[in-house]
Design a protein around this nucleic acid. Structure first.
Lengths: 247, 247
DNA sequence: CGCTGGATTGACTCGGATCAAGTCGAGTGG
DNA sequence: CCACTCGACTTGATCCGAGTCAATCCAGCG
């Protein structure tokens, strides 16, 4: 059984056996974190590379007035700050959302890995490209989509990303996001998140409950959000619309 | 006189003379573009690397309903899509805002440049890191800042980035952004952009007119927007607050 | 069994969108 | 030199999606 990191990378490029072993080895002995723990904070010196193996985390920034904006969700398989050590200080914080297992790879080890395994390096570059595309997709959502569209779009994204690493089970996904975190991510208030989730439930599109998400009607969700998966640059074809077919 | 690209890179790392010459050479003979021309469109095959030498451009996405969201502004010195060729298709479009001179470097030439000049490679990595941080800053703006704060924040960012490559003249910056493009970038309507610009003018903070921006009171602008330049990871110290001191 | 963090619901407010007229300025052609 | 045009900018009146404020509910847990 390959770990989530390897599984994600293999979704991006073909890795030879030797590379897989090396990457597996580098990510054994993950550190355990409880929920809501900062891995690193804005202003901290940049450090090693974090690789999520289990659980969820998020990047966020705090504004002068105390409000918070989440800028990315990280799930198993996601790595962060590959090149971050090229600059001196973090410009944002990273925090676990749920309990998590996170491998910590030193700058030095990562450099060796990249040097000796060009395919791995390429996979990391592609992963960064996708992260960037995802940031752009979020900007589009915040700028031009209604709250209903925005939530739908995010859920499509998370579901699809999660399905890449086998986190989904049919139309179901374990998703430990509270309405408060969702509000911080989508630029809305928890109250309004609640109302929109209710609306999506009543539309029969999806149901987000404590700890998990159920996609009841992928078609509707895609139609509402105008979701186009092209920015995730997936190699495999199976998409959101395939969810229903596979059931 | 070094071109804008070299000037930007030198703001990120120290480049030796040989590297500078090579980069200069690679960016001679730029292509000329008129305003509002697409360099590449969403869905197109990924291609060469574009390097802005003069004029402005933007990345954008069009939504199903026809509305548009700009996700980044590109000014002289900015390069785009260094690693984009690792994926097959563009997930967004790029368009000139003003007339522009843009060097086009083939994938092959770029690979050679990166291979033979590690400092150049490092500068490009840092540039990408900053681009990513800028995307996050935009998300924060769209999610948690009022329209007044949002415009102020963007103007701080653009002024500071422009000053890095010597585009500013005291408190003045040539900036060919229409209120319509600004609206598409900030997730607002042109009408409201107009009103907020008027307010900023009346506050004596800044004045955006046809084709140029004047920062009248950097302090106020920074205070309104809560601008923190840390995400731009500049090496030089001179900031927005230095504008006034230098006058 | 009460405490706590999240979820839910209702009443009211408000920032920014929408709709609808203008105005201004740089071409451009007669 | 002036009329015409077109794109961008302005301004006012009105509307509405989402925020704010304030209870209340609910489940897990020490």
């Amino acid at each position: 059984m390959l770990n989530a990191f390897v599984q994600k990378l293999r979704g991006l490029v073909d890795l030879d056996a030797a590379t897989i072993v090396r990457v597996e080895t580098a990510t054994t002995n993950p550190r355990l974190f409880r929920a809501k723990q900062d891995l690193i904070r804005e202003g901290d010196m940049t450090g090693p590379v974090f690789v999520m193996l289990r659980g969820w985390a998020c990047r966020y920034k705090i504004l002068p007035n105390g409000s918070r904006q989440v800028t990315a969700f990280m799930m198993p398989g996601d790595a962060c700050d590959l090149h971050m050590s090229l600059v001196t200080a973090m410009d944002h914080s990273i925090q676990t959302i749920s309990a998590a297992e996170i491998a910590i790879i030193s700058r030095r080890d990562m450099d060796v890995l990249i040097d000796e395994h060009p395919d791995f390096a390429r996979a990391m570059d592609i992963a960064q490209l996708i992260d960037e595309a995802t940031l752009r997709a979020w900007i589009v959502s915040m700028g031009r989509r209604s709250s209903l569209e925005r939530i739908s779009h995010l859920m499509c994204e998370l579901y699809l990303r999660a399905s890449e690493i086998g986190l989904t089970d049919g139309k179901r996904l374990t998703l430990p996001l509270t309405q408060l975190i969702l509000a911080d991510a989508l630029g809305m208030t928890p109250v309004h998140i609640n109302r929109v989730l209710k609306e999506l439930r009543q539309l029969g599109a999806m149901d987000l409950q404590r700890g998990f998400l159920v996609i009841d009607d992928p078609d509707t969700l895609v139609r509402i959000s105008g979701f186009d998966e092209n920015y995730l640059h997936r190699r495999s074809a199976s998409g959101l619309l395939g969810v229903r077919a596979s059931n």
